[in-house]
Protein backbone atom coordinates (compact mmCIF):
# COMPACT_ATOMS: atom_id res chain seq x y z
CA UNK A 1 0.00 0.00 0.00
CA UNK A 2 1.18 3.50 -0.78
CA UNK A 3 2.26 5.44 2.26
CA UNK A 4 2.57 9.15 2.71
CA UNK A 5 5.73 10.45 4.33
CA UNK A 6 5.48 14.03 5.42
CA UNK A 7 7.75 16.62 6.92
CA UNK A 8 7.59 20.25 7.96
CA UNK A 9 10.06 23.12 8.09
CA UNK A 10 9.14 26.07 10.31
CA UNK A 11 10.63 29.54 9.93
CA UNK A 12 11.21 29.81 13.67
CA UNK A 13 12.30 33.46 13.77
CA UNK A 14 8.80 34.47 12.59
CA UNK A 15 6.97 32.08 14.92
CA UNK A 16 4.89 33.70 17.67
CA UNK A 17 4.31 30.54 19.68
CA UNK A 18 0.53 30.79 19.33
CA UNK A 19 0.23 26.97 19.50
CA UNK A 20 -2.52 26.82 16.89
CA UNK A 21 -0.46 24.42 14.75
CA UNK A 22 0.11 22.18 17.75
CA UNK A 23 -3.64 21.89 18.42
CA UNK A 24 -4.37 21.31 14.71
CA UNK A 25 -1.86 18.48 14.22
CA UNK A 26 -3.52 15.06 14.49
CA UNK A 27 -0.13 13.35 14.98
CA UNK A 28 1.27 15.43 17.85
CA UNK A 29 4.27 16.09 15.64
CA UNK A 30 4.75 19.65 16.90
CA UNK A 31 5.44 21.18 20.31
CA UNK A 32 6.78 24.47 21.64
CA UNK A 33 10.49 24.64 22.15
CA UNK A 34 11.74 25.44 25.65
CA UNK A 35 14.04 27.89 23.83
CA UNK A 36 12.98 31.30 22.57
CA UNK A 37 13.61 33.08 19.28
CA UNK A 38 14.98 36.61 18.86
CA UNK A 39 11.52 38.10 19.43
CA UNK A 40 11.28 36.25 22.72
CA UNK A 41 8.68 33.71 21.71
CA UNK A 42 8.85 30.00 22.43
CA UNK A 43 8.72 28.66 18.89
CA UNK A 44 7.15 25.59 17.32
CA UNK A 45 9.41 22.61 16.61
CA UNK A 46 9.01 19.11 15.23
CA UNK A 47 9.33 16.65 18.11
CA UNK A 48 8.30 13.41 16.41
CA UNK A 49 9.18 11.93 13.03
CA UNK A 50 5.58 10.97 12.22
CA UNK A 51 4.30 13.81 10.01
CA UNK A 52 1.94 12.68 7.24
CA UNK A 53 1.93 15.97 5.33
CA UNK A 54 -1.79 16.50 6.02
CA UNK A 55 -1.38 20.34 5.90
CA UNK A 56 -3.47 21.07 9.01
CA UNK A 57 -0.68 22.98 10.77
CA UNK A 58 -0.03 25.16 7.74
CA UNK A 59 -3.74 25.95 7.30
CA UNK A 60 -4.14 27.43 10.78
CA UNK A 61 -0.75 29.19 11.05
CA UNK A 62 -1.39 32.96 10.94
CA UNK A 63 2.24 33.69 10.05
CA UNK A 64 2.33 31.39 6.97
CA UNK A 65 5.72 30.06 8.06
CA UNK A 66 5.25 26.31 7.82
CA UNK A 67 6.44 24.64 4.63
CA UNK A 68 4.97 21.16 4.25
CA UNK A 69 6.46 18.27 2.28
CA UNK A 70 4.85 15.00 1.27
CA UNK A 71 6.38 12.03 -0.45
CA UNK A 72 4.34 9.03 -1.49
CA UNK A 73 6.29 5.79 -1.11
CA UNK A 74 5.20 2.33 -2.21
Amino acid sequence: MAKSLGDIVINIEKCKGCELCIAACPMETIALSPKINQKGYHYAIKVQDNCTGCLNCELVCPEAIITVYRKIVK
Binding site: P34, K46, I66, T67, Y69
Partner: peptide, 27 residues
Protein backbone atom coordinates in the same frame (compact mmCIF):
# COMPACT_ATOMS: atom_id res chain seq x y z
CA UNK B 1 8.40 21.22 28.27
CA UNK B 2 12.10 20.99 29.02
CA UNK B 3 12.60 17.40 27.84
CA UNK B 4 11.34 18.13 24.33
CA UNK B 5 13.95 17.63 21.68
CA UNK B 6 13.79 18.93 18.14
CA UNK B 7 13.80 16.14 15.57
CA UNK B 8 15.89 16.90 12.46
CA UNK B 9 14.22 17.07 9.04
CA UNK B 10 14.13 13.97 6.90
CA UNK B 11 16.31 14.71 3.85
CA UNK B 12 14.44 12.01 1.88
CA UNK B 13 11.26 14.11 2.17
CA UNK B 14 12.43 17.70 2.50
CA UNK B 15 13.16 18.30 -1.19
CA UNK B 16 11.72 20.92 -3.53
CA UNK B 17 9.88 18.30 -5.58
CA UNK B 18 7.88 17.19 -2.53
CA UNK B 19 6.66 20.62 -1.39
CA UNK B 20 2.88 20.54 -0.88
CA UNK B 21 2.59 23.92 0.81
CA UNK B 22 4.70 27.02 1.02
CA UNK B 23 3.94 30.67 1.71
CA UNK B 24 2.27 32.36 -1.27
CA UNK B 25 4.74 34.53 -3.20
CA UNK B 26 2.41 37.56 -3.13
CA UNK B 27 2.50 37.60 0.66
Amino acid sequence: MSNLVEVPVNPEVVQDQFVVYKKPKTL
